[in-house]
């Protein structure tokens, strides 16, 4: 599914969060949004999901205006994994996932196979009879991913899929996303804070700041390093890993002070 965004403005509680976002997310690609806290990444993701009003002729899914979709129709096309989804009270993982099938395009007969497949694809099969509230943070993150997949979306939106996941889980995440994308013919848009993770997951990278997309690049480009260095200015140290891939670590600034207005460089 191709997503086109045209000069999108979003206000929340009379504060401007998205200030004229434009961009294209391509069908069959994994697109990753990066940027500092509060730059509007999550808001953009939720607006693409149709959870926040976008206004007319601002977001197009395969050329169709998103404001023309009913919630049920949209739920058959896209799924979103939120950053902090509310947990169900006293429910098994399988019962929880069955709720995701409410508006699924493939219908009630496909409920059980779709849930089984979502559990298998995320390594949650063994968790299916567990109570959701007894799961660990990492297990919960996988179950939430399975919840989104059980909807059988064309477009998968992920808000920080790497958050709260241990080292092994993080190491497996890029491969997991790529496999899911290929097997299910998904279009993926994810918000990822960890630049290293973003580099390994993404086909295309988007940088946001102050409510706008200010740069984007394909990760296959030979001049990727120059582009990243130009736009993420000093926030990351880039280097080549032992396997030859480009790696990124946050640049540690040893000269800073904490003032009432936040962390300041000296």
């Amino acid at each position: 599914m191709n997503i086109t965004i045209d000069d999108l403005f979003v206000k929340l509680n009379s504060k401007i969060i998205l200030n004229g976002v434009s961009g294209q997310f391509h069908s069959g690609k994994i697109s990753i949004l990066t940027g500092p806290n509060g730059c509007g990444k999550s808001t953009l993701l939720k607006t693409i999901a149709g959870l926040l009003p976008a206004g007319r002729r601002r977001i197009f899914l395969d050329g169709q205006d998103i404001s023309a979709f009913t919630p049920a129709l949209l739920a058959g096309k896209r799924a979103i994994m939120l950053q902090h989804p509310r947990l169900p009270a006293l429910m098994t993982v399988r019962e929880y996932l069955s709720l995701a099938r409410y508006s699924a395009a493939s219908g009630r007969k496909q409920d059980i196979p779709a849930i089984d497949r979502a559990l298998a694809d995320t390594g949650c099969t063994d968790l299916s009879v567990r109570q959701v509230h007894t799961l660990s943070g990492g297990e919960l993150r996988r179950v939430h991913l399975a919840f989104a997949l059980a909807q059988e979306p064309e477009l998968l939106l992920l808000d920080e899929p790497e958050a709260g996941v241990d080292a092994a889980g993080r190491a497996a995440l890029p491969e997991l996303l790529k496999n899911l994308q290929q097997q299910r013919q998904l279009t993926v848009i994810a918000v990822v804070h960890d630049m290293d993770m973003a580099l390994h997951c993404a086909d295309e990278l988007f940088g946001m700041q102050d409510g706008k997309i200010i740069w984007h690049t394909e990760t296959k480009r030979p001049d990727l390093l120059e582009i990243l260095q130009k736009f993420t200015g000093g926030n990351f140290d880039f280097f080549t890993g032992t396997d030859g891939s480009l790696r990124a670590l946050p640049h540690i600034n040893r000269h800073y002070s904490v003032s009432p207005n936040g962390i300041k460089n000296m």
Binding site: A49, P71, L82, L87, A100, Y102
Partner: peptide, 12 residues
């Protein structure tokens, strides 16, 4: 009971 956002995401 999963919250308004998730409900809307599921078409409710």
């Amino acid at each position: 009971s999963l919250g308004g956002e998730t409900a809307l995401a599921l078409g409710v």
